[in-house]
Nucleic acid binder design. Sequence first.
DNA 1: TTGTATGCGTTATCAT
DNA 2: ATGATAACGCATACAA
Lengths: 337, 337
Amino acid sequence: MKKENSAPTMKDVAREAGVALGTVSKVVNGIPVGDAYRVRVEEAIRKLNYQINSYAQGLKSNKTHTVALLIPNTQEPFYASLVYHINIALLKRKYRMLLCSTDYDSGLEQEYIAMAQQNKVDGIIGLTYNPGLVIEESTPFIAIDRSMRPNIPCVTSDNFAGGQLAAEKLADLGCRNVAFLRTGSSLSNEPNKRKAGFENGCLSRGLPYEMKIISDGDPYSEFEEFLASHIREGRLSFDGIFCVTDGLAYSIIKTLRKLNQKVPDDVQVIGFDGTRHFGNKDYTCSTIVQPVPEIAEMCVELLLQENMPSKPPLVCLPVTYAYGGTTLEAAPEKEER
Amino acid sequence: MKKENSAPTMKDVAREAGVALGTVSKVVNGIPVGDAYRVRVEEAIRKLNYQINSYAQGLKSNKTHTVALLIPNTQEPFYASLVYHINIALLKRKYRMLLCSTDYDSGLEQEYIAMAQQNKVDGIIGLTYNPGLVIEESTPFIAIDRSMRPNIPCVTSDNFAGGQLAAEKLADLGCRNVAFLRTGSSLSNEPNKRKAGFENGCLSRGLPYEMKIISDGDPYSEFEEFLASHIREGRLSFDGIFCVTDGLAYSIIKTLRKLNQKVPDDVQVIGFDGTRHFGNKDYTCSTIVQPVPEIAEMCVELLLQENMPSKPPLVCLPVTYAYGGTTLEAAPEKEER
DNA sequence: TTGTATGCGTTATCAT
DNA sequence: ATGATAACGCATACAA
């Protein structure tokens, strides 16, 4: 009687190859060993279909090659894209990803952090709007879109520049009177800078603007009323609208249609995020594109960088404008299927 | 000199509380212990902010409470939705998820399986189109949308019924001549049954149909040519089209517009998947909705079910039809924002 | 009821 | 260069 049918261990390999345990370990870890031994061990490994046990490995080395990602969900396109690109960035470095979908639930976020720490992850990347989140000093943490603490780096798009770019684009496209529409957390976070950037852009171009900002609990209908109240004799007084996200832009465009306003002929709309249909087809609207692959890469790089003298507290990555059919402009160069 | 600043262990807690190691273990695992002891241990745990090391735990118990999910990506809405709901189903059972985004790469899929096994995951859920995938018997595996082996359960939508439903819907909506359009893997998998179901539905309703099926490498333009070749004097001979996925439907609708065909007035289009804009807004087109939450739940349930007498080889879950603006029908009951 | 000792699979430090 | 052995943090069977 040896053991059950459980997975073979190094000991089994050693016995099979007729060598000592340490020798097997060396072969597995690429440490030089006599050729004859190496071959025998390799054969035994193949024969038994041996797989190293990374739990035992992690127990020794105190490194698990695993990173936890905290994100509200994987369904909203921006989040889905982040998950995808962070996964790629981790894979490139042979790291695994523990996915923690939090549904914006603070309690769950905190639970996931504890879980990640119990799992001895090498670090956490988190997009969370929970201000009171408790993060142990000992666990490296990178925040997306929100500055949590001075010693926790925050990676984000250049939201201010994005807002500014939106204003400038609208001005360039001939708008004379524009609006900024925002919904979402009133919590101080990076995306909130889109507003300031937009105002700045409008001012520098002498473009008159109005703002309508509603908070999370408020009904969407407030936007509809706001827009309706700016219609005189069937004409909307705005000829350009900047929405804080593509998701909002989508809803606003629907509302505008309902109000008999033609997009982009009567009113042009620019969103923010760079959302594409089905993740890889056309942009859902004209938009300020977030550099998601770069954000992902930066998060992972910052997190895993061993000998970083001092981590930067805030990293803003450049955004671009993309045409998506809701502004007056040339059709995109390339047709996508 | 004790140790570094590394995380506290049970030993530290025991020392702090002045009890034995085993006692701490018992408290942590909820095994009855003298009240006075329990309190002291709990205090020490709080004081040191002790977190159990699940790696060491898993090493003993040979259970890791972790499941790997193999999926092509997280950006396409159907996959994104699966990831989201599987995460929820796992969370409910206090299981963690190791996300493995494979990009349809067989080599990567195989690598991820090895990685998962090294991580001693308790099981794998995989949506993969790789026929040659090698899966060790010892690792529980649940396949989505594809029967891999007799002893590997496959969870999928009722694709045949979905195809049939699409045909019947088109018939009910007054179509007289319809088409089925498909692209993708020619590999035998469950979604391929959509075609058979559709044919079946057409036949039973006496609805004439044509098919255009192109394989993965073929250019999308073949569909465009196919459609163009069925236009006589500006009119398309089809008044209904069933597309194998919403993603294809999206492209086809664009093409139809280019060909000056009005959707849904000239030609109605039904897709498959139940994709919504931004994950939670309107359907992107009229569609056969896959029961993603139920698929997720079923996968997890089958995977983690301990005392399953014999796992069913194939589980098909019921689909539904949803209006999404590309068919002639009443507007949806509920307005979404 | 509480404490002690052993082993899980691996790595690293030793002698050999 | 290779083999034996201790140690990682925890669970558990067993002794006290």
